[in-house]
């Protein structure tokens, strides 16, 4: 009844009405920003008096925007690679292992995900000040890795749990060494988990603001920090241009994910 579309009667209209409004609420700010980034008004008047590419020109003319984007990209790539590698080793250990404290260890590995980021940010800031890692690429990578690793362990761990170990055993009996069996059989079979781990790790680092605000120095800042710093001064449309590019990136990533998922399934 209540879960049957045809029996809902006028309730259906209410439910769908709320859904349409909510969807619009979720979508509108994103479309709005994209539209504003092409508007000519310095004060972000909507609808804009005329259309222009001026804010994009300003964005690309400023080397600090490009530099921060490049820094973000470098950090995100390194974090992705390390997070996937560590996630693989850890997931194999946690899924296959039968040692004491396994559950406790699992919980510890996932805590950075549930802890308020600001606590970690402040703690790492103090710690890095002492050991001289503040404002360095290494510092960024380490702190983002701590944040990304739980997602990686979760995605790969789930995939590995759904993978029958007998298949790997079969490969070993076929003559593949244990390592070869993992590389040639297990990894391809859990590739969807590895892929999710990579996407989540990349996004975690690429979008991360809070830790980055504390970690950055005048010479080394990530794109989110640059956006943050700009926003604290004024609401310039250049940020709208930068945001639109970030939204575009998100859409591209979603398409990539959809395509890869489809490819992995068939």
């Amino acid at each position: 009844m209540l879960l049957n579309l045809n029996r809902l009667g006028w309730w259906k209209l209410v439910l769908f009405g709320i859904t349409v409004l909510t969807t619009a609420f979720l979508l509108l700010p994103i479309l709005f920003i994209a539209a504003l980034s092409f508007g000519s008004s310095q004060w972000l008047i909507f609808p804009p008096p005329s259309w222009t590419l001026r804010w994009y020109q300003e964005l690309f003319a400023d080397p600090r925007w490009l530099a921060s984007a490049w820094t973000s990209f470098q950090i995100a790539i390194i974090v992705t690679v390390l997070s996937v590698l560590l996630g693989l080793a850890t997931s194999f250990g946690l899924t296959r292992g039968r040692f004491a404290f396994r559950e406790g260890l699992k919980a510890l590995f996932l805590t950075p995900m549930i802890l308020p980021v600001v606590v970690l940010a402040v703690a790492l800031y103090a710690f890095f000040l002492k050991i001289g890692l503040n404002g360095t690429l290494t510092g960024f990578v380490i702190s983002h890795l701590v944040l990304a690793l739980p997602f990686s362990i979760l995605s790969i761990g789930n995939a590995l749990e759904g993978f029958d170990k007998s298949i790997e055993d079969a490969a070993v009996l076929c003559g593949a060494s244990p390592l070869e069996a993992k590389v040639r059989v297990t990894l391809p079979a859990i590739s969807h988990g590895i892929f999710s781990a990579a996407i989540f790790s990349f996004l975690t680092s690429w979008d991360e603001v809070v830790v980055a605000i504390f970690m950055s120095s005048p010479t080394l800042q990530t794109l989110p920090v640059k956006v943050w710093a700009t926003l604290r001064q004024d609401l310039t449309p250049v940020v709208a241009a930068a945001s639109t590019l970030l939204i575009l990136l998100t859409v591209l990533l979603m398409v990539l994910v959809a395509v890869v998922r489809k490819g992995l399934k068939s």
């Binding site: 055993d169 076929c174 003559g175």
Partner: peptide, 16 residues
């Protein structure tokens, strides 16, 4: 195991 040259068919389906 991988050098024993033994063949095995398992209870569960283990095709790659």
């Amino acid at each position: 195991s991988h050098k024993r040259n033994i063949g095995m068919v398992f209870q569960r389906y283990t095709l790659f």
